[in-house]
Design a protein around this nucleic acid. Structure first.
Lengths: 203, 203
DNA sequence: ACATTTGTCAACCATTTGGTTAAACTAAAT
DNA sequence: ATTTAGTTTAACCAAATGGTTGACAAATGT
């Protein structure tokens, strides 16, 4: 048997599945399309992943595993809130420009099947807001920040960073801009968003 | 025939279709489920709307028509930017609490089929940012606002208001809160978000 | 009263879809 | 050379799906 070959095939499948699932979602994706894109027979999909559902879950977990560490930097590292905001905003927008379908994919599929997040929550490394909340309280006490609930600040940071990518067709239409101008706007946001946030919360 | 009855049926169908499409999306929705929910035969769906695609478009345009006027208030009315932000934030969040599936539905389907927005753009009443941009420039010149591009401010306003609802499963998981606490957070945001924005842009 | 149009339904149809099977192929181990 | 175990394929299948048909009922116009 060919140990080298099967790993290769398995990966081809996963790559193809990623592309198809992330663009079309679970419901819109077709096993045949994934097979074609991976240049293999449809039966191979089932040989390696047993069912559409399991293949999908492999893709989804993979995608989430890419996203989670990004969030954990802002939640768990030791720099000040302001530094975190500046770092996160810059890094995250660069990250998303490289993986444009990721956030809408994850959000869409979690809306379709909200219970699925329970499975993810069990895994270690799942982002948790607790430490961040404490830090916000501390910095408010120190007089560095204006009063704000940690949850609200965190929601604001996520919203400002992620939403424009999730809603890009809408934003392009409202602002009457093409892809190039949109990309420019998003690049500007690497510093723009951080300033916007810091402006609002710093004393 | 029953003129009263057919209008009734047509509406029953649209209401049922709304529910199913908004939760399951175009790909996940089933004509049979819509028929069942409307308590009619599946053939009736085609009698009134010819195809799944056309029924979907009816639902989508309907949904968008609900959303657009909300945006136009902030884009086109004559109050100051600060007043607009405060008004919009409060009204919009109330609105979304009443129609929780609307924003994710529209965003999801536009991502699936971005060309669709061209059809919407032609219709009058489609939100346009031009007037808002001019107003931002004017208030900056007057010294009321700190310098910011109108596009960025508008994106920020939308992000802060809409994203939490689109990504609610994620946010509930990260913040470790249940539906009740989430609703409370969103209610707080009616003023919280406006303050956050005004804090950041006012001189 | 009667023909015509409109509305409703059960049964049906063609196609697509996820999934299965059984046989063929490959390459390493004995 | 033969066995063994993993890999790949073409053909197939049952269920689901969007859509159609033809019969029939209810309302309308004349």
């Amino acid at each position: 048997m060919a140990k080298t070959k099967d790993i290769n095939t398995e990966n081809q499948i996963l790559e193809a599945a990623k592309k198809v699932f992330q663009i079309k979602g679970m419901d819109g994706a077709r096993m045949q399309e994934i097979a074609d894109k991976a240049k293999i027979n449809k039966a191979m999909l089932h040989y390696y992943y047993r069912s559409k559902q399991l293949l999908f879950e492999a893709v989804f977990k993979n995608a989430f595993a890419l996203l989670a560490p990004q969030l954990n930097t802002i939640l768990n590292d030791d720099s000040s809130i302001e530094e975190k905001v500046r770092n996160f905003t810059s890094n995250y927008i660069s990250f998303i420009i490289k993986h444009p379908y990721l956030p809408s994919f994850i959000i869409q599929e979690l809306n379709r099947n909200p219970e699925f997040i329970l499975k993810l929550k069990e895994q270690k490394g799942f982002p948790n807001i607790a430490k961040f909340k404490k830090q916000v309280i501390l910095e408010i006490e120190k007089g560095i920040l204006k009063p704000i609930k940690g949850e609200q600040l965190f929601i604001n940071i996520l919203s400002l960073n992620i939403f424009p990518f999730v809603a890009s067709p809408l934003i392009k239409a409202f602002a009457n801009i093409d892809n190039k101008e949109f990309k420019q706007l998003m690049n500007d946001r690497k510093t723009e968003v951080a300033n916007f946030i810091v402006n609002s919360i710093k004393t």
